[in-house]
């Protein structure tokens, strides 16, 4: 009886682990994408950070870069910035506050949702965005898995 209970609990535990691992793998995994028509094939986290923080306006190959952001408060945005720029949401707001209110620049354009970002990126060879890995299709190319 005791053995059965342990066995039973063991099964429960295994099931829990399995569920947890599914939950974790299903959690947002951000990837950086460009149009499949773009000449850019890969980027480093530093290069991507510079583009999204407005420090450079071109890809390393010299082509104009047009970054597309997801809205403030979205999980994918927070994941992207914490992995690529090591800034949390308030550090990022503080960073842009300095730039906006001194008239030096504006943050990237906002588009809401992975599907809409993918569509915008696919249609513009200069665009660069970040979406969940599960939203990637042939219209876009993954250039960084941070």
């Amino acid at each position: 009886m005791g053995t059965l209970t342990i066995l039973h609990n063991g099964w429960k535990f295994t099931l829990l682990l399995a569920l947890l691992s599914i939950a974790f793998s299903a959690q947002a995994e951000v990837v950086v994408v460009v149009s499949s028509k773009s000449s850019v094939t890969s980027l480093t986290a530093e290069q991507t950070a510079k583009i999204f923080l407005g420090k450079v306006v071109t890809f390393p190959n010299g082509r104009t870069a047009f970054p597309i952001d997801q809205p403030e408060g979205s999980a994918i945005r927070d994941e992207f910035y914490s992995k690529v720029t090591h800034k949390n949401a308030s550090q990022l707001t503080a960073y842009w506050a300095k730039i906006i209110f001194t008239g030096e620049g504006r943050p990237p354009q906002l588009i809401m949702g992975d599907a809409a970002v993918r569509k915008a990126v696919a249609g513009n060879p200069n665009a660069i965005g970040y979406i969940d890995k599960s939203a990637v299709n042939r219209s876009v190319r993954v250039v960084l898995k941070p």
Partner: peptide, 19 residues
């Protein structure tokens, strides 16, 4: 406009903010 037109790649002309 940008919410309905997802492929828009231009920023709005005016932006109001403050602190």
């Amino acid at each position: 406009a940008s919410a309905t037109n997802n492929v828009a790649t231009e920023q709005p002309m005016f932006k109001l903010g403050g602190f």
